[in-house]
Design a protein around this nucleic acid. Structure first.
Lengths: 221, 221
DNA sequence: GTCTATAGATTGATAGAC
DNA sequence: GTCTATCAATCTATAGAC
């Protein structure tokens, strides 16, 4: 139901119907991610998301059944990106390489996906009403494999003895802080961080953490 | 206007009118802090706050002119508590003592004021629409004095050279994470952190950070 | 000061023309 | 598939009895 004329006037993009649908959904999801990040789920309005995506409000409901379903898709998309970065935590590499790569990747993520990070933070802060199942399955499994790896490093004497959980939380907290608290950081910095400042911050974070668990950081700082 | 009989039936608390008003305001502020933390500003409703404080909705508007004014008072109260903890960062003490005390105090704060921390995080994440002036004045001044202290430690060779800002952000992020992401931590932990776990986490955080900037942490880990 | 009832504005969602 | 108009529910805020 709903098949009409194949060529709509003013269609800037060519492609199959499926591709056009995907493109429109992406536009809406991008706008929604931004609005949810800036206002939270309760504070965001479908009207604001419609304005941000340049579409009439009713179209949002054509592509996403409800505000909650749209929000769920935004959160799921972020979790996927988060997981891809998580995989940069190589379980086969040395502690130095694995941790430095993971921290660097997460800092990059905070810079490139500020809104997504904020949506995730909001969701978790409010008790994860939508993605609790992900926390209990995917996140828990990922975390447990990494805990095992870090524990092995500890027992092999490659790093100082440390509870892997507190170390992981420190890494998550610090890297995500640069996205979630970007406004505070930029206020204190009187403007956005420069390329150079991002590099310095990343290097300093790596340096403190690596040295903090007994590794020679090998960096410039 | 509004002075009526001095003794209301069922009043469990004795005290002057001013004291009773203060007590009622505190009850409302506590409830509001919790509801704002759990639902965000936009998601919170005056009805939910009224239920949480055991008062009719109209009474909230008697004590606080609007939802926004109530929210502002909640945020201001949190900022005051945050500042008190901030003062535990002794500018005259040694790096080890000053930092260990400050981190410990902030971890305590995360444990005892989870809701307040979340409200603060929410406010900053959404661009600090209410407390932007505090960021630009009080927070900036506090931060600059501490940056100066840390820089002096660096230059005196007491700690490794490090940009004080990235160090402060790491401390803020890590300690506040235990409040803001408590739900995620408790999910992975299959329950709230025990006294022992809080102590261990605090000690590990202190250890990694102190060692990370070149200090012998002197702790158990 | 406290509470019930309600006004006035906003919002999520849908109907229906095109 | 797109868009305008609108309904039904919800929420902030207030009026007014007690």
């Amino acid at each position: 139901m709903g098949q009409t004329h194949a060529a709509t006037p003013g269609a800037e993009k060519t492609g199959t119907r499926a591709e056009m649908r995907e493109e429109t959904e992406r536009v809406i999801l991008d706008a929604a991610e931004r609005v949810f990040a800036e206002s939270g789920f309760g504070g965001a309005t479908m009207q604001a998301i419609a304005d941000a995506s340049g579409l009439p409000k009713a179209n949002l409901h054509y592509y996403f059944a409800s505000k909650e379903r749209l929000y769920r898709r935004v959160v799921e998309r972020i979790f996927t990106i988060w997981l891809e970065a998580a995989d940069s935590f190589e379980t086969s590499a040395s502690p130095e390489v694995a941790l430095r790569q993971y921290i660097t990747r997460k800092m990059d993520l905070s810079r490139r996906h500020r809104f997504g990070s904020k949506v995730w933070a909001n969701e978790v802060m409010h008790g994860a009403p939508i993605i609790q199942d992900y926390l209990e399955t995917t996140l828990r499994e990922w975390t447990e494999t990494r805990i095992a790896v870090i524990r092995r490093w500890s027992e092999a004497g490659q790093i100082r003895p440390v509870d892997p959980r507190w170390l992981l939380y420190l890494i998550w907290a610090t890297t995500q802080h640069y996205a979630d608290f970007a406004h505070q950081i930029e206020t204190l910095n009187s403007g956005p961080l420069s390329d150079r400042q991002w590099a310095e911050a990343t290097d300093t974070v790596c340096g403190i953490i690596l040295r903090g668990i007994g590794l020679d950081d090998g960096g410039t700082a």
